[in-house]
C-alpha cells in the first residue's frame, strides 16, 4: 500500500446540493475555457444555498473541478465574502469606508451593534442576524449604505435602518 499522498482527494458520493444548484454547477463548468474558472461562482452559490462553505461543500466543489481541497481552501480564504462558518439568516453589512464614514457609517454600525446586541462578524442567538463592518460596497454617492445579504439600502439614518431591520425580522418569523 502506498502511504503517500499521490491521489486526488476522495470522491464524495452524489451531491449535497439541491438538484437545481447541482444542475447549475453542471452548466457553469461548461461556460469557461477552463473548468476551474467556475470556482468562485460555485463557492458563492454554494454559500447562498447552505449558508456557509461546509467541509462537504468544499469537498464536492473540489471534486467537481478536479482540484484538491487545499487548493479550494486557498482560494476561498482569500475572498472576504466567503465564509466557512454559518452566519445569520440576514447578514447586515455596514459600510464604514470613507464616503459612508463621512455620512455617518460608523455611527450606523455602532447603532446596529446596540440594536442587534452583537459585534463585528457575530450572529444573534436566534440566528436571524449577523453583523459585519465591511469595506466600500460601491454605493458612495448614496451613503451611508448597508447591504443585507445581497440587497442594498442607501441614504440611511439610524431610524430608517431600524425600520429595515424590523422588516427583515418579520420576514424571518414568517
Amino acid at each position: 500500500m502506498s502511504l503517500t499522498n499521490i491521489s486526488v482527494d476522495k470522491k464524495p458520493e452524489g451531491t449535497i446540493f439541491s438538484p437545481e444548484l447541482a444542475a447549475r454547477f453542471d452548466k457553469l463548468v461548461t461556460l469557461y475555457p477552463m473548468k476551474r474558472s467556475a470556482l468562485i461562482p460555485m463557492l458563492l452559490y454554494a454559500q447562498d444555498e447552505i449558508g456557509y462553505l461546509s467541509d462537504a461543500a468544499i469537498a464536492e466543489i473540489a471534486h467537481r473541478l478536479q482540484l484538491t481541497v487545499l487548493d479550494v481552501r486557498n482560494v476561498l480564504s482569500y475572498y472576504s465574502m466567503l465564509r466557512t462558518r454559518p452566519a445569520g439568516k440576514f447578514n447586515v453589512q455596514v459600510c464604514t469606508n470613507i464616503s459612508c464614514m463621512l455620512r455617518g457609517g460608523q455611527e450606523l454600525f455602532e447603532h446596529c451593534e446596540r440594536q442587534l446586541g452583537i459585534g463585528h462578524k457575530q450572529t444573534t442567538p436566534d440566528g436571524v442576524f449577523s453583523l459585519e463592518e465591511v469595506e466600500c460596497i460601491g454605493a458612495c454617492s448614496w451613503a451611508p449604505a448597508v447591504q443585507v445579504n445581497y440587497d442594498f439600502h442607501d441614504n440611511l439614518t439610524p431610524e430608517t435602518l431600524d425600520a429595515i431591520l424590523a422588516e427583515y425580522r418579520s420576514k424571518a418569523s414568517q
Binding site: M34, L39, Y78, Y79, M81, L82, E135
Partner: peptide, 20 residues
C-alpha cells in the same frame, strides 16, 4: 467574492481563472 485587489487587471484574470 470580495476583494479590491481583483480590480488590478492581472489579479482579475487570476480570479476569473478561479484562483487567489
Amino acid at each position: 467574492a470580495g476583494a479590491y485587489e481583483v480590480g488590478e487587471e492581472s489579479a482579475l484574470m487570476e480570479s476569473l481563472e478561479g484562483k487567489r
